[in-house]
Design a protein around this nucleic acid. Structure first.
Lengths: 148, 148
DNA sequence: CTACATGCAAAGTATTTGCATTGCA
DNA sequence: TGCAATGCAAATACTTTGCATGTAG
């Protein structure tokens, strides 16, 4: 998983300017295990940048996603972001429905899935949802995170 | 997969009233293989009901989802609905990125996935995205459907 | 200095709610 | 006939865009 400096380097390489706000954003994502919604980010950033506007948050999330430093996934309650997992190691995730932290699953079902030759596979998704050890000790208010 | 009458019966059992509009909705979903967005539904229904309003479509989709006759899934471009797959046969789907039709995969990776005992599994998702035979013959304009 | 980043305001889109009217059961 | 379903209008998110100003490089 990328650290703060790696995120900034990556952005800088691609010609993006490193502003104070982007430095904070990079740090926030580097230090967060789970997913963050634009609102989460806005609220966190807002504590340090009084005049912060939502559109800047959205713009930065979008560029960082396009640039590949962030992953974007759509939960039932909206889109969320997290740092991109290090490239090269294909894996899937267990996602906690409570805290939304993710844990890697290195097993990939794809090779043993029997897909008819007539279907041209582009990508796949395998996600396991539940409650992580920490959250099991606490209560589980109903919260959604995915399907089936 | 439920047919028109089964959908209506199910709704009627639960105390919902069978209006003309709901009859058409049931038929639409019973005869559609892929996913439909609220907008798709609105446009289709609008051809037969001139004064149709969007909120009624949303309300009916919601009720039918809560009732279990429709499945709701969130794509990157919004939520979509389809008839609920017949109960009892656990399976996953291949989803065409072009036409959004789905094809069953009876293989389930869950039993062979090594989940630490400390993680309490609630549900899982395994989806394969690509292009179905029919759509491969045509062009593939960029279209989104899921992650990873 | 120049081009990109930001804040502000406003526009878009998607979805939900309140209320009066209509119509199924 | 009574209560749920509908249409209409307006409210509420959520996200994007245009433009003037500020600032990294």
């Amino acid at each position: 998983m990328l650290n703060t400096q790696e995120i900034l380097d990556r952005m800088s390489e691609k010609g993006l300017r490193i502003t104070d706000q982007r430095r904070t954003l990079a740090k926030l994502f580097a230090e967060t295990d789970g997913y963050l919604s634009p609102k989460d980010v806005y609220e966190y950033m807002g504590r340090q940048y009084s005049g912060l506007s939502f559109d800047t948050v959205y713009r930065n999330l979008r560029v960082m996603h396009e640039l590949g430093v962030l992953e974007q996934i759509v939960f039932e309650d909206g889109m969320k972001f997290r740092v991109h997992c290090a490239a090269g190691e294909h894996h899937h995730h267990m996602i906690c429905l409570q805290c939304e932290k993710t844990y890697p699953i290195h097993f990939c079902p794809m090779p043993m899935t029997d897909v008819p030759g007539s279907f041209q596979v582009v990508k796949h998704k395998f996600e396991v949802f539940g409650y992580c050890e920490t959250c099991q000790r606490e209560d589980h208010p109903l919260k959604s995170g995915g399907n089936e």
